[in-house]
């Protein structure tokens, strides 16, 4: 049981990921974009952040960099959901301080397997 902040602008993805994580017993908070997520993170610390990359207002890479500036998020795992297989995004994510990535599309099993690696 971990607290997880899920950030994605797509409602269906949020619903699917959140359903899966909650099914595994986790406590899931949701945000629609980086700005909302950062707002939330400033008030509440979570065990894991799972964020999409392409989002309005603030993208996932920027969010990662911003989160790393917060004391309470210095070492927390941050996973990036990405469709891009190319290493550019992953590299950008790493530079910003992301722990790892999950490639889209993924199925619920793969998702749970992956997040368990950082919990």
């Amino acid at each position: 049981m971990a607290s997880i902040l899920l950030v994605d602008d797509s409602a269906s993805m949020r619903e699917m990921v959140s359903f899966t994580l909650k099914g595994a017993g986790h406590d899931v908070s949701e945000a629609e974009d980086g700005v909302e997520a950062l707002e939330f993170a400033k008030k509440t610390a979570v065990d894991l952040v799972v964020t999409d990359v392409n989002m309005p207002n603030m993208d996932g890479i920027t969010l990662t960099a911003e989160l790393r500036k917060l004391d309470s998020y210095k070492f927390n795992p941050i996973l990036i959901l990405t469709t891009e297989t190319g290493s550019v995004r992953k590299e950008q994510g790493k530079v910003a301080g992301a722990t790892g990535w999950i490639e889209k599309p993924f199925d619920p099993d793969h998702l749970l397997g992956t997040i368990n690696r950082v919990l």
Binding site: S12, M16, F19, T20, G23, D107, D109, G113, N116
Partner: peptide
């Protein structure tokens, strides 16, 4: 890793179509 969990993805289809 973990035991297989079975999640029926079709329950998210309506939301997905709406989002489309």
């Amino acid at each position: 890793m973990d035991s297989e969990i079975n999640i029926d993805l079709s329950q998210f289809h309506d939301v997905f179509f709406e989002e489309c």
